[in-house]
């Protein structure tokens, strides 16, 4: 990350609820990787950040990723660093996990599993929703 210099360290004047909605598989497109960069910046700006993983986005958190054969960097360990940025609200949609035969134990970080109606409620309470 090269743009932390804009943060003056005095704390933000306004804190808003930022929700990132990850809907895509980690590889195949760049969205997951670049979204993760944005999440880290929002956290550095001390906003109230939460992250949702749904649809194929749940694969971003899958344990034991091996990307050697596609020549891409495995960035899944970075999700474990989110806690260090105080990004602790990680939500995974229950239906998306189940459709893919996954459980919370298959994921690299502890998450809160919520059904789509519960997620809807949390989403409606956000100030900014960024989907990618």
């Amino acid at each position: 990350m090269d743009d932390f210099d804009e943060f003056d360290g005095d704390g933000p004047e306004v804190v808003k609820r930022f929700m990132y909605v990850n809907r895509r598989a980690p590889y195949g497109t760049v969205y997951a990787l670049e979204c993760l960069e944005t999440i880290l910046i929002a956290a550095a700006f001390e906003q109230d950040v939460s992250v949702v993983f749904m649809d194929d986005g749940v694969y971003q958190l899958k344990k034991d990723q091996d990307t050697a054969a596609i020549g891409m960097k495995n960035f899944s360990p970075t999700y474990r660093a989110l806690e260090g940025y105080e990004v602790e609200k990680l939500y995974v949609e229950k239906e998306s996990l189940e459709e893919r035969g996954l459980t919370a134990e298959d994921l690299v970080v502890p998450v809160k599993v919520l059904n789509s109606a519960e997620l809807q409620e949390i989403m409606a309470a956000q100030d900014v929703v960024l989907s990618s």
């Binding site: 804009e6 910046i41 700006f45």
Partner: peptide, 22 residues
């Protein structure tokens, strides 16, 4: 050209942040 902080600032300062993409 500037940093991602400008996006977060836009989210903070605007009444609505509208995302155009897939």
């Amino acid at each position: 050209i500037s940093g991602l902080g400008q996006l977060i600032e836009a989210g903070v300062e605007s009444d609505r942040l509208v995302v155009f993409g897939d």
